[in-house]
Design a protein around this nucleic acid. Structure first.
Lengths: 196, 196
DNA sequence: GTCTATAAGGGGATAGAC
DNA sequence: GTCTATCCCCTTATAGAC
């Protein structure tokens, strides 16, 4: 980890983000010091400020990058017209995307209260857009008589909360494959929004 | 908030717990200082140590009290033999109990990583017992042919994750009453575990 | 039981040398 | 671009007066 003096602008930046991501996820934003991040990267604390104006921007950047990647990746998925197929695609996409990025997901959900008010609004806005994508599917399904939910807003949040739960217990070396988990959750989502 | 010197052992203890609860929930354990808690209570920081050996014990006590109250209150609910009625009772109980204690719930889920390893084990054990209560209901329902889930362990976690989500958006002055929310979630839970 | 004072250390962020 | 050194403030926890 220790390094000699020199210029490494092209690699230090990403390394700082990776170290901050892992440390924030493991110990929490407030519990991690800039000195700790610097030690992980192998530079002195002062050098971090060549890449970020302050600690808050480091957190905000990580959360914003994550939410933007989430929205962009979902937007790039093939979108069919059938609400049922769309809901299955969303379910499987959500689980897959989130299981691939446990640290980012953890931070995005746990560190909201450590954002400044302006940054909090920005992240909440991105999250709202993702929820809107799911709600649009549910609304189309309800309109087509394929789904039956009392309230599409609540159903949206219920489905996302349920799917987010996967990250708290799934282990790659566990007894179920990722695809089996996807199928199990899709089965419950499908039934939960189906007509009674 | 400011107070003059004197002895108030009977009221200071609870006031410290209340202040710590609210501050930990709002800003996070790591971001809250003992001085902040003391200021809220109206004593000097040193006085806190008459009531807790250290900051960690304060957090652990709050989480342990919450989990024990959760288990005890559930155990005191009338328990019927019908799995379907039991699942509805669990759903409504869970939402009601959690909406009544938003700060405790927030801490119990967000501050796990700030517990010492021994304390983490103790809280995880209590949480596991609560999950077991739900899983037992699901197992009885599956055995009776009333429910159909691919995996009772996953279904247990999925249901709890879904129900926990209520705390992130429900506001008492919102458009839905607590009972309406309970009914909406019960409808989704019921269908999610029903035979296909 | 609470206070004041203090120990011993860590925090974010900056300045200026190289 | 990184280092060393530093500013100034805050941290948990304890000691001893009252």
């Amino acid at each position: 980890m220790a390094r000699t003096t020199g210029s490494h602008s092209d690699i230090t930046g990403p390394r700082i983000q990776e170290a901050a991501l892992r440390l924030f996820a493991q110990h929490g934003y407030a519990a991690v010091s800039m000195r700790q991040i610097a030690r992980e990267v192998g530079v002195q604390a002062g050098a971090l400020y060549n890449y970020t104006p302050d600690k808050q921007s480091l957190l905000f950047g990580l959360m914003q990058d994550h939410m933007r990647a989430l929205l962009a990746t979902w937007a790039a998925q093939p979108q069919g017209r059938d609400p049922c197929a769309a809901l299955e695609a969303f379910t499987r996409f959500h689980i897959r995307f989130h299981l691939e990025r446990p640290d980012e997901v953890f931070i995005a959900y746990m560190e909201l209260r450590n954002l400044t008010p302006e940054n909090h609004v920005a992240i909440s806005d991105l999250r709202g857009r993702y929820e809107d994508a799911l709600e649009a599917i549910l609304k189309r399904g309800v309109a087509a008589g394929l789904f039956d939910v009392a309230d599409t807003k609540i159903a949206t949040r219920a489905v996302i909360a349920m799917l987010n739960g996967v990250n708290t217990w799934y282990r790659a070396d566990g007894r179920l494959s990722q695809t089996e988990v996807e199928t199990t959750y899709w089965d419950m989502v499908r039934k939960a929004v189906a007509p009674a």
